[in-house]
Design a protein around this nucleic acid. Sequence first.
DNA 1: ATCATCTTCTATGTATACATTGGGATGAAA
DNA 2: TTTCATCCCAATGTATACATAGAAGATGAT
Lengths: 242, 242
Amino acid sequence: MSKAGANTHATRALVELRERILTGEFGVGMRLYEVPVAEQLKISRTPVRDAFGRLAEEGLLDRLPGGGYAVRTFSVEDVIDAIELRGVLEGMAARLAAERGPDPHKLETMQKIVIAIDGCFSGEDVNIGRYSELNSDFHEALAGLAGSRTIQREIERATKLPFASPAAFLPENARYFPQTHSFRSAQEQHRALVVAIEAREGTRADAIAREHARIARHNLEYVLGEDVNFDQPLPGLALIVN
Amino acid sequence: MSKAGANTHATRALVELRERILTGEFGVGMRLYEVPVAEQLKISRTPVRDAFGRLAEEGLLDRLPGGGYAVRTFSVEDVIDAIELRGVLEGMAARLAAERGPDPHKLETMQKIVIAIDGCFSGEDVNIGRYSELNSDFHEALAGLAGSRTIQREIERATKLPFASPAAFLPENARYFPQTHSFRSAQEQHRALVVAIEAREGTRADAIAREHARIARHNLEYVLGEDVNFDQPLPGLALIVN
DNA sequence: ATCATCTTCTATGTATACATTGGGATGAAA
DNA sequence: TTTCATCCCAATGTATACATAGAAGATGAT
């Protein structure tokens, strides 16, 4: 057979190209040609083609009508809708979990994550790195809580776009936020979401999850509005035009 | 360059394999090997690999951990969730259109489609073939009504699974329905949806779209429950196990 | 008999040569 | 100058030979 997907040239090309696209190393909308990319990566066209196809699947490349690929560009509206979409999908996951009754073990895991996030706060300070990590765990657990392969798969897909993921605009080194207040209200939403699901309140769970995703939208608008300085550029921000 | 995607071996392999998968020619869960498939199609492995990748993207094939692909199998719950997902996405499209104000021209197009569907009814009879076609048009228009590339793309993706599409369980030759009543109530939902969007009633539009998708679920349960005879097998039904 | 290791074979990963097509450059004619 | 036809080339499509890893089976020792 072959490797589990690791150690192959195709996989390394996928990772490498994803990185370069997200950092904006290729210009927005720039067409990518197999031959020069293969030369750059010192591999043949075959694994490059493979990687291109997967990047198109992820939504980072566009398939051009006549064949070939180009770096996809996102308008601000595209990003806003992608965030809204995540909210809707997570809302669906939360509602289904509530309606069908969540797996008690998985729900307990989520409760533990919430408690762990509480530990990120001390006075006015927030351990943003740890918060970001646990926040991702929370959202991953939410996606699987309803036990629906279909919805889990779809959430995974939708959050592959870096600015649509729950961790978007929450980089480890984020110190650009004017106040740490938003982290606390986000955590209150985490708590309320778990309570609603446990109480089988599907509609409320749906609404909370949607509103929760709006935090990302708020952060996006803040990042785009102010002239914020980043220690390192936010991944994918380079793909947003205007 | 090369062709726009037509006339290539890869494209023909994609179409051919999709057809064979949906008709259940390959057993459910059956692993597909590049070499024998390539020999069957009388082409080389290269376009077959390409087609496999795209079919995995569509959700018809699973990528196996160690490499390779297998025909994906769907449980009844998977199908129900896929239908529910379509309802949620179409609900989002309807809500966004209502909230943001739909393109008047597109809305007018939808109104015309609704009127055209009215023409499918005469007394107790329903022109199912024409209904099915116009119904697809309606849902396609709905996906684009909000003017959101993101949501349109996602709806297209979700409805690529044949049993999740609005036309599922509505084959041209469908005469297995016990009553034509359901077509009329579906049409009432079409009408109400357009009215709600026009009146900027986002929540109502969302609710109607979700409920509308439930018709497909109802039909699915009918098809699975009774021992219905089909003139030709419903596409994709062969992939549903249990 | 059981386990470990080695071999072998199979299926995918990769490189590369060749095919093909679409577009752009080039040139001639109006 | 404009327009049309032709040619050429660049980029992707395709075939195929070879590489490689993983699994299954064979072989041997204990």
